[in-house]
């Protein structure tokens, strides 16, 4: 009884220390966990895998440094997947910091020998159109005219000077949209306008917090696939046979979850035992 009463009054700082330990120790002693990709992650992978070489894909980044630990591994995974398949990539963002983080993701990708040797060229194989304010209105406007919505790329180069953008008028010239979003404006706006109004197939990646809100779009097939949080990122790295922070962070994530689950179970048992004792 004393033990259970003590558990109910446990100093929260002890829990913080245990969680910190659960996160830090696997970073020092890494071990690999076998991944079992979810059908939602598999859906995104399959959708990109089916795209023919030379397709043009828009990858939009709606996240910031605060949510980058979850979203950035997805962005890096998507860039690698597209480049391996010879897909042309148009980067953009509806959040101000999105395109800058996309630039960092590109730098990460090009650090790897495989992609360095591909000799991919800015303007021909990929472009970064940068940030545009307006959220859903921007997507709607792109449905009418992409050059009118983004007259220049992120660096201020007129897009008619970029070979990749020649012949790109609106969503009719876009094969697929990948949206990586941490909130609003984000995936719901892309689904509403790019998919439902202009009929561009799409998939998304999001922070774990927003995943339950986006799952309904999977059963309606408005999204071909969905990467939810760090687990989604790890799934994607596993499926594309890439190494990255998604898989690297999974042991920390799993051990921390285990500690939380154990505390929830002990807390509940303690609650019922103490209540039963008090009734007597």
């Amino acid at each position: 009884m004393g033990f259970f009463r003590g558990m109910l009054n446990l100093d929260r700082r002890i829990i913080f220390i245990l969680i910190a330990g659960a996160v830090v120790v696997p970073l020092f002693i890494p071990f690999h966990l076998k991944m079992h990709p979810t059908p939602a992650s598999q859906g995104l992978y399959n959708a990109v895998e089916k795209l023919p070489e030379g397709s043009t894909v828009i990858i939009s980044g709606e996240y910031d440094p605060g949510t980058a630990p979850e979203i950035q591994p997805m962005m890096i995974g998507a860039l690698k997947h597209c480049f391996r398949k010879g897909i042309k990539v148009i980067l953009m963002g509806l959040w101000p910091q999105g395109p800058a983080l996309e630039g960092q993701a590109l730098q990460e990708v090009f650090k790897e020998k495989e992609f360095k040797e591909m000799n991919l060229q800015y303007g021909k194989d990929y472009v970064n159109l940068g940030y545009k304010a307006g959220g859903a209105v921007v997507i709607q406007s792109m449905g009418t005219s992409i050059p009118a919505t983004f007259p220049t790329d992120m660096a201020g180069t007129p897009i008619e000077k970029l070979p990749l953008m020649k012949g790109i008028r609106n969503f009719n010239d876009i094969t697929f949209v990948l949206d990586f979003s941490a909130g609003d404006p984000g995936t719901p706006a892309w689904v509403m306008f790019a998919h439902d109004r202009f009929h561009v197939p799409m998939a998304a990646g999001c922070t774990a917090v927003s995943a339950p809100m986006l799952y309904p779009y999977l059963q309606t097939k408005q999204l071909s696939g969905l990467l939810g949080g760090l687990k989604g990122a790890a799934d994607y790295e596993w499926l594309t046979k890439s190494s990255g922070t998604g898989i690297r962070y999974m042991p920390s994530q799993s051990i921390a979850h285990l500690v939380i689950v154990i505390f929830i179970i002990i807390g509940n048992i303690a609650f019922f035992v103490v209540r039963k004792g008090e009734k007597r």
Partner: peptide, 21 residues
């Protein structure tokens, strides 16, 4: 939703720990 929220917060903590260490 709670489970996903826990996952998100732990991911951010991992990101910070990776930065610090």
């Amino acid at each position: 939703s709670f489970g996903y929220t826990v996952m998100a917060r732990i991911s951010l903590l991992i990101g910070r720990m990776q930065f610090l260490l």
